[in-house]
Design a protein around this nucleic acid. Sequence first.
DNA 1: CATTGACCTCAACCATGCTTGAGATTTTAT
DNA 2: ATAAAATCTCAAGCATGGTTGAGGTCAATG
Lengths: 144, 144
Amino acid sequence: MRADDLSVGEVARRCGVPVSTLHFYEARGLIRSGRNAGNQRRYGRAVLRRIAIIRVAQRAGLSLAEIKAALAGVPDGRAATVQDWRRMSTSWRESLQERIDDLTRLRDQLDRCIGCGCLSLADCPLRNPQDVLGAVRSGPVLLD
Amino acid sequence: MRADDLSVGEVARRCGVPVSTLHFYEARGLIRSGRNAGNQRRYGRAVLRRIAIIRVAQRAGLSLAEIKAALAGVPDGRAATVQDWRRMSTSWRESLQERIDDLTRLRDQLDRCIGCGCLSLADCPLRNPQDVLGAVRSGPVLLD
DNA sequence: CATTGACCTCAACCATGCTTGAGATTTTAT
DNA sequence: ATAAAATCTCAAGCATGGTTGAGGTCAATG
């Protein structure tokens, strides 16, 4: 316990998250807290940074489980170092880029398909590849 | 009932989704089905297109509720027309673009912050704006 | 020293998007 | 005709990311 330890309410206010979320993160093992004499949570300042990192990672599309794993190298007592941050953010940047690429591809496909309604054609890239011909059969193939 | 009506299994196979998903979509009002004499679902071919549209919309990030709303103008019996498709896909393209822009901004912020660990600075754009100074207080401000 | 706000635990609940299973019926194939 | 495969309904379950509430304690204020 140190003089500048933070209560759960203060952390919540400073991080812009509800107290319930902090409880939840703790239950999930993403953050930890000490307790004061009256069993109330007390956090070192490092938690603020940790929570900031959690939120950035969430925006980047990571699940809490993934974030927990990434934070495993940052013991909860100490603040994440620049090296910690670099390691995590670099990896997140990559998966973020992949998501962006996926969505961009989808957008481009949409652009190409918006006017043509080609969703009805067998080779529309937007269309599920499974639904190509339904089955091998003779006669004209009816597409949808 | 027409000769080319499809069973739920066939629709599932052609769309690449489990039968349970089709039941689920029906329960949610996204698709509808007729029944044969033995109470089994029978679908017109239009459903294939409808499901293709649903899946594209999901990839674009829409919830089933939003998709249902968008499909409201396409009565389940008839196939979505090119106009229907244009209306929906154009709107989805826009929200997709917004998501792409959001993620791209985040990526760029990450790029700028990866090396500097600036998550610790009050004005880091990645950092929650709520946590600026904690409170008004005298003396040196300790940031985290 | 009493009240009020902050905090505690634990369980239950919410929303989304499905999946799984039980028990019964129907359809299809041999 | 019979067995296997497909289908039916309905309820319950799962995963994610939390929120809400009850019942009780702690701490700061006047």
